[in-house]
Nucleic acid binder design. Structure first.
Length: 552
RNA sequence: CGGGACGUAGCUCAGCCUGGUAGAGCACCGCGUUUGGGACGCGGUGGCCGGCGGUUCGAAUCCGCCCGUCCCGACCA
């Protein structure tokens, strides 16, 4: 079937709305792939849906290839299931009731639903199982953004593995990891698999697939030598060494009037900001904990939360005065009665710290001698750090999270009673994993990574059409012939048969981004030829009309 | 949820400060000339100026409330 531009709903735009900033947002909108219905709500127009379906099909094939079975679970879900797993209070969850007042939620992911069905598995003989679906997710995002990058409703491929034990889960997990690499490769997307925080999934181990892009919500940290990649939230970097002042045998008080920031403190004392320490009092589990990082560093809250094993919040000024007897800006670990968590960078050396006396600091404060701290990696890696593996330079890029896989363990099987009887006759909870990919995010990522100022450049694997035949005035018939020949050779063909000027057709072709453009016009028809142009490279060659369909 | 901005034609925006019958470019429709990189001329269609209330003889314009959208942050499988 030849698609005719004159009949397609393909509303391309010369300009993007002023509020569209991300490249993928602008180009998908301008190319007539998507349209907005509301905040975080997007309709896929015919071409956009084609691309989405192509990505879905690649994912489907790779899931099937590892023995994963496709099914479909509803979006509307009895709230009871989420009550049992304790996830009913997640703020992003959409709640609703039916006419009888019974509570439901819109699934934002389907662990509960799949585990509910997994509970029907009875025996180790039925394990392992791998199930997946392309399910619609609803999320009451506080801030949808950037077109397809963060939506309130979207389709996700989520898969769930059911194993007897941790060893089985490990095998399943690695299989998905390998399948994901193939999927992203086939979609033409550059990704890095990195260790990540499990977040609300509450699992043990998780691997994030991050794709560097011009826009995105994650920061990918990679080493120039290719031996390290991590999400900024957990990235380890080696900071430069501070220039320490002369060593002191004991801390020494120094008056620092008005020096409440690291910059002003370092300037006042004429020392390297890296030779100071920054005190960040937080409240975790009802008590004040002092998080201490080097003066030139920033606290990475995800790392601190992981170290503390719980969420925390900044302490209020009142809590600070009660716990330290001083104002913020003069706080330090010496003499503090609560727990101190100090960053690795403070393990050795003497630093300036707040004296817990407003307007005063201490010089020569040493961890282990002057105060006792739990030493952990709680700083945010930053530009200029060196690689923890090889000492190479670290690179920071914004990235889109296109996939995330989790080892769930028995987080869901226990509360939902998904038990099986093992060989030894004992009842055990099923050990689970969950594995997600957002096809729309993959789509946005492809545009981010491959788009240019003129438009999109789809890889063959996901392109809405393989070949875009542009019919120029006076060559309509020959363009039909060319399209027919290509169609017969099994190419998906888009024929631009609209009554438009050449320039507009070319501009639209560049924007829409089919891999190959065939230009049929009077200029070359005298020689019985057409121009075949590669969208990605811009290379053009002349091919005899009679040879079309024989070559790719 | 905090900070900022915006809402006028399908799209991009002007008009608002200083109240007095709603504008431009692009798009769209018709005719003509053009036709290998977003043409030109002539003539047209299209707007509850986000909503409600207030001030005023009179509100797109001033004031208040609400709604919506975007950006930064918080948040985020």
């Amino acid at each position: 079937m030849i698609a005719r531009a004159s009949q397609l709903y393909l509303p391309t735009l010369r300009e993007a709305p002023a509020d569209a900033e991300a490249l993928s947002h602008r180009l998908l909108l301008r190319g007539g792939f998507i349209r907005q219905l509301g905040a975080g709500l997007w309709t896929f127009l015919p071409l956009g849906w084609k691309v989405h379906q192509n990505i879905v099909q690649i994912i489907r094939e790779e899931m099937n290839a590892i023995g994963c079975q496709e099914m479909l679970a509803p979006v509307l879900t009895p709230a009871e299931l989420w009550e049992k797993t304790g996830r009913l209070s997640i703020p992003e969850l959409f709640h609703l009731t039916d006419r009888g007042g019974r509570p439901y939620i819109l699934a934002m992911t389907h662990e509960e639903s799949f585990t509910f069905h997994g509970a029907e598995l009875q025996s180790y003989r039925q394990l392992p199982q791998q199930w997946y679906h392309f399910g619609t997710k609803g999320r009451d995002e506080p801030r949808p953004r950037a077109g397809l990058i963060r939506m309130r409703e979207f389709i996700m491929k989520d898969a769930y593995s059911f194993d007897r034990d941790e060893e089985g889960l490990e095998v399943s997990f690695r299989r998905y990891e390998a399948a994901y690499r193939k999927i992203f490769e086939r979609c033409g997307v550059e990704t890095y698999a990195v260790q990540a925080e499990p977040g609300m999934m509450g699992g043990k181990e998780s691997v994030d697939f991050l794709a560097p892009a011009g826009s995105g919500e994650n920061t990918l940290v990679t080493c120039e030598n290719g031996d390290y990649a991590a999400d900024l939230e957990i990235a380890r970097g080696i900071p430069r060494d501070p220039e320490f002042p002369e060593r002191l045998d004991a801390p020494e008080e120094v008056e620092t009037p008005g020096a409440t920031t690291i910059d002003s403190l370092a300037e006042y004392l004429s020392i390297d900001p890296a030779a100071t320490s920054k005190a960040m009092p937080v409240v975790a589990n009802g008590s004040v904990v002092l998080a201490l990082v080097r003066g030139d560093d920033r606290l990475e809250s995800a790392k601190l939360a992981a170290t503390l094993g719980s969420d925390f919040r900044p302490a209020t000024e009142e809590e600070i005065r009660t716990a330290f007897g001083a104002d913020p800006g003069s706080l330090g670990p010496v003499g503090f009665q609560g727990e101190v968590v100090a960053d690795e960078a403070l393990r050795a050396g003497q630093f300036v710290a707040g004296a817990n006396r407003t307007g005063w600091h201490l010089r020569g404060v040493e961890q282990g001698r002057d105060f006792q701290a739990r030493v952990a990696d709680i700083r945010e890696a930053r530009e200029g750090d060196r690689c923890p593996e090889c000492g190479g330079a670290l690179r920071f890029q914004t990235a889109i999270e296109v996939g995330h896989i989790f080892k769930l363990g028995t987080r869901y099987s226990e509360p939902l009673g998904a038990m099986f009887l093992d060989e030894d006759g004992k009842e055990k909870p099923i050990v689970m994993g969950s594995y997600g990919i957002g096809p729309a995010r993959v789509m946005a990522t492809i545009v981010e990574q491959r788009g240019d100022d003129r438009g999109i450049s789809w890889p063959d694997s996901v392109a809405p059409y393989a070949i875009h035949v542009v019919a120029l005035p006076g060559a309509e018939e020959q363009a039909e012939q060319a399209a027919t020949a290509l169609d017969a050779a099994c190419y998906a063909v888009l024929l631009d048969d609209r009554e438009q000027r050449a320039g507009e057709k070319f501009a639209d072709a560049d924007l829409i981004g089919c891999p190959v453009r065939v230009t049929v016009g009077k200029k070359t028809l005298e020689d019985g030829a057409v121009d075949v142009r590669d969208r990605a490279t811009g290379e053009e060659r002349r091919v005899a009309l009679a040879d079309l369909g024989k070559v790719s």
